[in-house]
Design a protein around this nucleic acid. Structure first.
Length: 464
RNA sequence: GCCGGGGUAGGGUAGGGGAUAUCCUUUGGGACUGUGGAUCCCAUGACCCGGGUUCGAAUCCCGGCUCCGGCCCCA
């Protein structure tokens, strides 16, 4: 039996490889036009880079291994963390903001299905150094334009995590996993029951995640103020607490005996000097978010405000967004991103960034760029003038792709081969041509032939 | 990790407890060494893997691998 490729990996034959390269080229051209420079990082990294903020369930999906020196390594499961590692290592003193883009393969040990593979490609950007509405709008508009440039029709949803995190901060840590799960699974009935059970139904969580489209923002503001009133006097945890506790709950399933650092009580006492400003910072966050939505209008980007977007990543802090392609079945999310603080976690100066990743394999199922793979010109020759044929091919290759027979075939067989590989033009070289100094150019579709000098052939075929 | 459906030459297929496994296509050669597509001839090439039942398994049974789709999960 022959050796099969590993599960969840793919071979890309010439047609598909060409299409992928064409789509990639269109998108990368656009990225460069927006001033985002390409960078690339290693295929494998230290395992800790990916586990630093994650629990066991995520580690289970990583292709991790030990090298011969006993180092714990991992094939990268995504590219944001490696990019931020690179930033912290080498680019912290570069002028801000930093506009970077990447295209690379990633690996996850998952069950393959449509639009999901064990080796897959991501294209994305990170704008490092700011978190104001302006950079966020730029990044979201860029994501929108990128998808549009390759004719991927999408629904774009933008949300904000500030308020939902504040509300979760007031729910006992042990109940959060179930609640997050119900939100994610869109189990509204179960969510409502659970909120009632733990007497959290007055916090506005279920109302919040229902907020979509026009007017959602104003209502979210109302909810924020209401939240303020309910929690009379300084019991609101700072956003950072909500974030850090959010991390713990999603990464471990046995919260019963988990460290009490996840308990808002601790965070509260440690941060008692900041509590007064906490809820107002939520309002500020929402105001910025409103400005972002206005800016998207300026960019001509249609986006649905959607407070149900929570994203799986724990390091997102404010604005988040996702794009869903129409007509892709179960795996229709093709793009996701938001604003996050990762540099500090990786040992650098705290810096905020906004970025997104596009699932390249998923968009390839619907992307169209309208270019066809060109086939080379065949230079067919009579064996007696092989040396001259090699010389002629060398010259013509400066202008266009040329292939020469290497099978010792007759002229007729070379013509047959040219036809089989779809060559549109054949240049014929034999003793006659060598003598006259003019080559024969044959159009394979019409069968028309003419004698031309080398330069004329170059000009003719280049202009096509 | 769970559920369902598949796996016969490079691609597509027929068959089916018993003889050399069917056909189309592709590939290489030839008819045909100065002009392709057609036709003909020749050649190469397969029962996913392992175990079981059997005198005999590609066929039946079990396990595995893998592909497709749906869950779970999704940094």
């Amino acid at each position: 039996m022959t050796i099969q490729r590993p599960r969840g990996t793919r071979d890309f034959l010439p047609d598909e490889a060409f299409q992928r390269a064409a789509v990639r080229r269109v998108m990368q051209d656009l990225l460069v036009r927006w001033g985002y420079q390409e960078v690339s990082t290693p295929t494998f990294e230290k395992l800790e880079l990916f586990t630093i903020k994650s629990g066991q369930s995520i580690i289970d999906e990583i292709y991790a291994f030990e090298d011969k020196g006993g180092r714990g390594l991992a094939l990268r499961p995504e590219l944001t963390a490696p990019l931020m590692r690179m930033y912290v290592n080498e680019l912290q003193n570069a002028p801000k903001p930093l506009r970077l883009h990447y295209f690379g393969n990633c690996f996850r040990y998952e069950r393959p299905q449509r639009g999901r593979f064990r080796e897959f490609w991501q294209l994305g950007v990170e704008l490092i150094g700011s978190e104001k509405p302006d950079p966020e709008a730029e990044v979201i508009a860029l994501a929108h334009d990128l998808l549009k440039s390759v004719n991927v029709p999408v629904d774009l949803h933008v949300g904000h995590l500030g308020l939902i995190r504040a509300i979760l901060g007031r729910i006992p840590a042990g109940d959060r996993p179930a609640i997050m799960r119900f939100i994610d699974k869109k189990e509204r009935q179960l969510l409502a029951e659970k909120l009632e059970e733990i007497k959290a139904d007055h916090l506005g969580l279920d109302e919040l995640i229902d907020l979509k489209g026009r007017g959602a923002l104003d209502k979210a503001m109302d909810l924020a103020e209401e939240l303020d009133r309910i929690s009379s006097g300084g019991s609101s945890p700072a956003p950072e607490d909500a974030i850090s506790s959010g991390r713990q709950e999603s990464s471990s399933s046995d919260l019963g005996g988990s460290p009490s650092s996840a308990d808002p009580e601790n965070g509260r006492s440690a941060r008692s000097d900041t509590v007064g400003g906490a809820s107002s910072s939520i309002r500020e966050g929402l105001e910025d978010f409103g400005e972002l939505v206005d800016l998207l209008d300026c960019y001509g980007v249609e986006a649905v405000v959607d407070f149900e977007i929570v994203r799986g990543l724990e390091y997102y802090t404010g604005t988040v967004f996702e794009a869903y392609a129409t007509g892709l079945g179960a795996q229709n999310q093709v793009c996701g991103g938001g604003t996050y603080h990762l540099a500090g976690l990786l040992g650098g100066k705290e810096t905020s960034s906004t970025g997104f990743g596009i699932g390249f394999d998923r968009i390839m199922e619907v992307a169209r760029v309208g270019v066809e793979r060109p086939s080379p010109v065949v230079l067919a020759f009579v064996p007696s003038v092989r040396a001259e044929a090699i010389e002629a091919a060398k010259r013509l290759r400066r202008s266009f792709p040329v292939v020469l027979d290497v099978m010792g075939r007759s002229l007729g067989a070379q013509m047959k081969y040219a036809s089989a590989i779809g060559a549109r033009q054949v240049v014929i070289l034999g003793p006659k041509e060598v003598e006259s100094g003019e080559l024969t150019l044959r159009d394979m579709e019409s069968g028309a032939q003419e004698s031309l000098r080398m330069q004329a052939i170059e000009e003719r075929l280049c202009s096509k």
